[in-house]
Design a protein around this nucleic acid. Structure first.
Lengths: 209, 209
DNA sequence: CTTATATTGTTATATCATTCACATAATAGT
DNA sequence: ACTATTATGTGAATGATATAACAATATAAG
């Protein structure tokens, strides 16, 4: 039974399913039941079936799921075939690390450019991605499709910059600054990577184990 | 009423409270009510009081919470004053970015060393942190206190390396590889930063907004 | 000193998420 | 073809989390 409103809990499990199914594909596994998928992932079979049922009926009774087909479906749900366009703002150590190591294309994103204030990097390319001056940012965004902006800038300027970008039409932010970016526009989506929060929860858990 | 078992949902909010309270401190705010804290953070006052009540009674009726005191309490709960020791395994782009930019000491961690296989970095220091050869890892861990290992290695070797480290007594992992590390020992804690999962949920949300 | 106001900690309620249980249907073996 | 087995999708039951409601108590004002 296709659902209208999918809960955040379900959405956050989808990438893990996708990851596991990609792995199964690579291992040459053709079919899998919710039960064995659950065993591999440490999730109940029930939850897996409930999760999938939010989006359609991908399995077959007595058989299970075809791995490759299911992977394609979930990839489709996640939008990996949407070819989203992305630019990065801030080409510091972290930005460079992402440009060098993160497989953006596997998740359906194309990195079209990066922006920075430092003359040392402006005009260069990082792993094939051209680095532009911050002054060129407005014009660039007006003239190109930019779905997502990766924010790897100092947090002091992050919120005001985000506000400005929202005005220019950006509707997705992958935020690495240590603040909670937000917008009054509910159509603008923010996804945060809060390193410090993550390490602090680990700190709590090793202290209270 | 102090609780015995704190839910994961509560724990994951603690760092955000800590962050907000640090900010309030810096802004010179002395006292705050659950209501106004909630407004600033987009959380209900009820939830804030519930969350805090898991750990004790930090407020005062008719007054609210003393910002500095509350910040100290939550920091204490999170273990920022425990002075945990940490080593990093894998000094690639990401590892270097973390060593240069991440304020480990703010979260109560000391980075004592890093390990890598590349002769190009072994023997050097990155932002004051000495880089050792992987061959020295076992001895090092046996002879020093190591609470947490930061895993920024290729995922192919991640799980076997984690298993080995658990045997040597490591009980905390900050995992940046794109796999689900695990251990049969429930006292070993894993905290994952899955970049790809994060970006994929963003992909879903901008596609379905 | 008294009263009105503010705000907590906690119990009760409502909402949301996960697991169970089962009818239904496909597969595999004889 | 028939039967036993496997497994799905889903409605109901349970469990977890978040919100609301309120008694208790401190502050602040007159």
């Amino acid at each position: 039974m296709k659902k209208e409103n999918i809960s955040d809990a379900v959405i956050r499990r989808l990438p893990r399913y996708y990851r596991q199914l990609t792995d199964l594909c690579n291992r040459g596994v053709v079919r899998i039941s919710s039960h064995s998928l659950g065993q591999e992932m440490n999730i109940t079979a029930s939850q897996i079936r409930q999760d999938f049922s939010c989006f359609g009926e991908f399995g077959q009774q007595g058989y299970g799921y075809n791995v490759e087909e299911l992977r394609t479906e979930i990839g489709h749900i996640l939008g990996v075939d949407n070819h989203h366009h992305l630019v990065m703002i801030g080409v510091g150590n972290l930005g460079r690390a992402l440009l060098h190591n993160f497989p953006f294309s596997d998740t359906g994103f194309t990195v079209d450019g990066a922006f920075d204030i430092s003359p040392a990097v402006i005009g260069s390319t990082v792993n094939g991605v051209p680095v532009y001056s911050m002054e060129e940012l407005d014009t660039y965004i007006r003239e190109h499709t930019v779905d997502v902006v990766v924010m790897t800038v100092p947090q002091s300027v992050a919120q005001s910059m985000a506000d400005h970008l929202v005005e220019l039409g950006v509707h997705g932010f992958w935020n690495f600054t240590n603040i909670e970016l937000s917008s009054v526009n509910p159509n603008v989506k923010f996804e945060n990577i809060h390193f410090a929060d993550s390490l602090l929860t680990l700190s709590y858990r090793i202290a209270n184990r």
